[in-house]
Nucleic acid binder design. Structure first.
Length: 300
DNA sequence: AATGGTTCCTGGACGC
DNA sequence: TGCGTCCAGGAACCAT
């Protein structure tokens, strides 16, 4: 499932291959993934055809291509099963669409870029760029997404965010997954970051000292940086990079997906429960569960 | 206004 | 072996 490290891996893979290239042909293969563009796939196709690619950027799980063309940017979100694949065509005749292939671009060097997404949670959007609250030029369609942990460059910025989380009564896990508060963190890295900080995800933000919330945010950043080093986490076959290779972070996970296995730190059995409709994996010894979770969600 | 719940979608895991 | 059922996930949307 692509979270920040997986999207960053794909962004890097694309960056070295497509920047400076021009989009020659657009094959809109149904275009069911187009969002927020009333004109649908036709709007996307006409914005991309002939455009030059100036850069590939990312915030959280959103990636966008900066364009010199009718639109400023092409925004890509991979949902939970999206893939961006690059291939060189075998000949002049375009291959038939692959299963679950939704869009295909032909670049001026003959390379093909395909957008594949079996579960259809991905998003494709063309958008203009504008300055957001942080001063960065970001697609307008991405303005509602908060900066991610890798964008927080100073301790001061981390503290400001930790104070924001401390001011709310929601569970910390829920807030880590709220892309409007901090972006890029999905279920895997939220659980891993909480483990590193020794905090149980059911704790309410208001009950957790700002110092500990900072440790959680730092934990998420550290674990995501480590994951980027090895190309992300391929929990199942759904995530691969632009060349089709999996990531290798799964073997370093401490809690996610390890229910019943021994904690790598203390040996206690990892447990799982449901928080806000999502699995939360934790070590009951390293992350003490609050006596009175804000809401008991396992009843009924 | 803030926040919890529901929905979208389909491959894969699981049970009989 | 083959069928049906359930679940996972991110983010938009709805309900309260």
């Amino acid at each position: 499932m692509p979270e920040l490290p997986e999207v960053e891996t794909i962004r890097r893979g694309l960056n070295s291959r497509i920047v400076g290239r021009r989009i020659e042909q657009v094959y809109g293969l149904g275009g069911r993934l187009v969002r927020n563009n009333p004109g649908g796939i036709e709007q996307v196709s006409s914005a991309l055809a002939g455009a030059s690619i100036l850069g590939v950027e990312r915030r959280g799980k959103f990636m966008w291509w900066v364009l010199d063309g009718p639109a400023d940017s092409f925004v890509v979100h991979l949902g939970m099963s999206g893939q961006v694949r690059t291939t060189t065509p075998d000949g002049d005749v375009p291959r038939p669409p692959a299963r679950h292939e939704h869009l295909r671009l032909l670049l001026d060097n003959g390379e093909l870029i395909s957008f594949v997404d079996p579960r259809m949670f991905g998003q494709l959007t063309v958008s203009d760029l504008s300055r957001d609250a942080s001063g960065r030029m970001v697609p307008t369609a991405v303005h509602h997404i908060a900066p991610d942990p890798l964008e927080l460059e100073s301790d001061e910025q981390v503290t400001v965010l930790a104070r924001l989380l401390h001011g709310k009564d929601r569970s910390v896990k829920t807030m880590l997954l709220d892309q409007g508060l901090v972006s890029g963190i999905g279920n895997i890295y939220a659980d891993e970051g909480l483990f590193l900080a020794g905090l149980h995800g059911e704790r309410a933000g208001s009950k957790v000292p700002v110092k500990v919330l900072r440790e959680v945010l730092d934990g998420c950043r550290v674990v995501m940086e480590q994951a980027v080093e090895v190309g992300g986490t391929s929990f199942d076959a759904l995530y691969v990079d632009v060349e089709g290779n999996p990531g290798y972070f799964e073997r370093q996970l401490h809690v996610y997906g390890r229910e019943g296995a021994a904690c790598r730190v203390c040996g206690t059995e990892i447990q799982r429960l449901t928080v806000q409709g999502r699995s939360h994996f934790f070590c009951p010894a390293c992350q003490r569960r609050p006596r009175n979770p804000r809401k008991s969600r396992k009843q009924n």
